[in-house]
Simulated scan of single mutants.
Amino acid sequence: MRILHVDDAAAVSCILAKYQQHIQGHNSKVIKYDRYDKFGFYKFYKDYVTIAASDEQFLKHIIEDAKSADIVHIHTRADMVIKLRNKFGKSKKIILHYHGTDIRGLNKQKLPHRSRVSDIAISLILKYRKIRNILLLKKRIHYKAQNLANAVIVSTPDLLNYASTKNDAVRKLYLPNPIDLDVFKPDAIMSSTINDDIKKNAVTMDNEVTDIPWALEYLEKNNINLDITVHDRMKHPLMYRDLPNFLKQYKTYVDIRYVNKKIIPALSKTALEALACGLDVL
């Protein structure tokens, strides 16, 4: 079977393509539009990914590769469902996969404050995304795309509330984020007792969507006393290849995500990766 993944979120499509190839024996690949590989995902999974440097090149690659694909699995880009359905009619099975803020939205995003130039550049990108998302909602792109897809997949259970299809033939599915167990795994050499003696207490990640002060206050109110290291992934991006060793310095990963004034009732991808490395997750 030929599977084409369109775009990506946090290497999810890359991991799916890898396991679909090596475990299931499918011909699976990813086309990604990304001029910046901030966390080194696509360098790490370069054998599975074609990078497009422009919107025009991105669409050209998708159309060309979709001709021979049995399934087109589209990540975040709801607009591509409509374009491909118009191009190929019902001859292709199309999956639309949401990962979080692409459908949930985000009321407020933070800047990394690495430099003034960096903040201006990132602010412009965030404004562009916000305007694009508003336009998608106004044009009811998500609704149209969901009803044209063969299935709608979400990465956390709360996102099922945003899958508003009226077409009974469209399946709505919750698929937890896949973890590459060749990369994220416990240390095999040292015993857990020795590890505990040298490991630090706990760690959490600060990024564009989290509210760390709220999370820390929440822990204090609930009498959870941990010596927590807060790693700012905006100011100090962690390369994907380095994340397993970083996580394994700690005993516990704290995964309290407070987004848009709500606690997200599911583990993040980083939390699942921490579990795979042998950490406790709160």
Rank of each mutant, 00 (worst) to 15 (best):
A266T: 04
A10W: 10
K130M: 12
V209K: 13
K43C: 08
D65Q: 15
N245Y: 14
N147M: 01
Y33Q: 15
Y240A: 09
K108V: 10
A53F: 11
L219E: 07
D119M: 09
L137F: 11
G25V: 12
P157I: 00
T165S: 01
D196S: 11
Y33F: 15
N107Q: 14
V259D: 11
T229K: 15
H142K: 02
D196A: 08
D158Q: 07
D255V: 04
V209C: 12
Y240M: 10
K29G: 13
N86E: 06
K185T: 02
V12F: 11
L16Y: 02
K269G: 13
D197V: 13
I103L: 08
Q24D: 14
N195L: 15
L106K: 06
L84A: 03
M234R: 12
H236A: 12
K185W: 02
I120M: 15
S118K: 13
V230L: 04
A53Y: 12
M190F: 13
H142Q: 09
V72F: 07
I194Y: 14
F88E: 08
S118R: 14
P157C: 05
V81A: 03
R35A: 13
V6R: 01
W214R: 06
V170L: 06
G25P: 07
K200G: 07
A10S: 15
H113R: 08
Y19C: 02
V281R: 06
H142M: 04
V254K: 02
L106Y: 06
A266R: 04
D158M: 07
D70L: 09
K235E: 07
K261M: 09
K90M: 12
N177S: 10
M80C: 07
D65L: 15
N222H: 15
P186K: 14
N167A: 04
L4G: 00
P186C: 09
N201D: 11
S164G: 12
